[in-house]
């Protein structure tokens, strides 16, 4: 069985059994991933479908005797680029589903029309390019761990110009992104020391008092009580001040009970 499963040489375009099995498992998964990416409403689910498709593509490359290409596909696209996408999507928030309101009239029909047209064009182009082509076994160029070497050789000889041009484009894009996102800092970056000094100088080196945890409630709106039973205004969050703060214990001590009846804010 394993002898059949091992990727044997292609004879007149006949596909080995192992390759066929892998194709018929991974093909539907990658298609489902692509469709799911378009149809799913939640942005994260959509991104994950794309990840599934990319992983399947990586596996396809490995089956098609391009292990280096396949693994680089997984490392770069799934491992780096899609993680960055997820990073951004997670910052957007978990309920950021797509709105289905059409902002431009007839946009959906136009998009569908152009989409189908583009798909047909690509399918025809690719289909024509491959008619009459014989699939070739890559054992010969791959000999002696040569997958990496052959890719490198092509990149640095025949396609050197395109390769360098692409890298220049990427660098320009990266620098552009940095320039667009860069914010000039006003003044110097505060150090730990200067922050500590500021804090002491502010007159309040300690943090603001937390909300009260009393027998009647422990919500964030519950004000903390000072030792004399009055409410500590500082313990109430800025936005909550319009709500009547929970005074907690109704039998809070009256300030007048103390000889020193200084009521603090």
């Amino acid at each position: 069985m394993s002898a059949v499963l091992a990727a044997g040489p292609l004879v007149n375009g006949q596909v080995p059994l192992g390759e066929a099995i892998a194709f018929w498992i991974l093909g539907p998964i990658s298609l489902a991933g692509a469709i799911g990416m378009v149809l799913l409403r939640n942005a994260i689910h959509s991104a994950l479908s794309l990840v599934a498709t990319m992983m399947c593509l990586g596996a396809f490359y490995i089956i098609e005797q391009g292990p280096f290409l396949g693994l680089v596909q997984i490392i770069v696209y799934t491992g780096a680029i899609m993680i960055l996408f997820l990073f951004v999507l997670m910052l957007v928030g978990r309920d950021a589903s797509d709105s289905i309101v059409e902002t431009l009239r007839g946009q959906r029909w136009a998009a569908a029309l152009f989409g189908i047209g583009f798909a047909l064009m690509v399918a025809l182009g690719v289909g024509r390019a491959f008619t009459g082509e014989r699939p070739v076994n890559l054992d010969k160029p791959n000999v002696d761990g040569g997958n990496v070497t052959s890719v490198a050789e092509l990149l640095f000889t025949k396609y050197l110009f395109a390769f360098e041009l692409t890298s220049a484009l990427l660098i320009v894009a990266a620098v552009g992104a940095m320039v667009l996102a860069h914010i000039e800092r006003e003044g110097r970056k505060p150090t730990q020391k200067s922050l500590a000094r500021e804090r002491i100088r502010s007159g309040r080196p300690q943090p603001l008092p937390g909300p009260g945890v009393l027998s009647t409630g422990n919500s964030i709106g519950t004000a903390a009580l000072l030792p004399d039973g009055t409410i500590s205004q500082e313990s109430v969050m800025a936005g909550l001040q319009e709500f009547p703060p929970d005074t907690g214990n109704p039998r809070a001590l009256d300030p007048a009970d103390y000889g020193d009846s200084e009521v603090r804010q």
Partner: peptide, 27 residues
């Protein structure tokens, strides 16, 4: 594989997904 070390590398980059998604999905 002729690119065996990259398999380990790819797996470690896929392991990130588990951590990233677990944090997001916990709500």
């Amino acid at each position: 594989l002729p690119v065996g070390v990259l398999v380990v590398f790819a797996c470690s980059s896929l392991g990130v997904y588990g951590i990233v998604l677990s944090g997001w999905a916990s709500g």
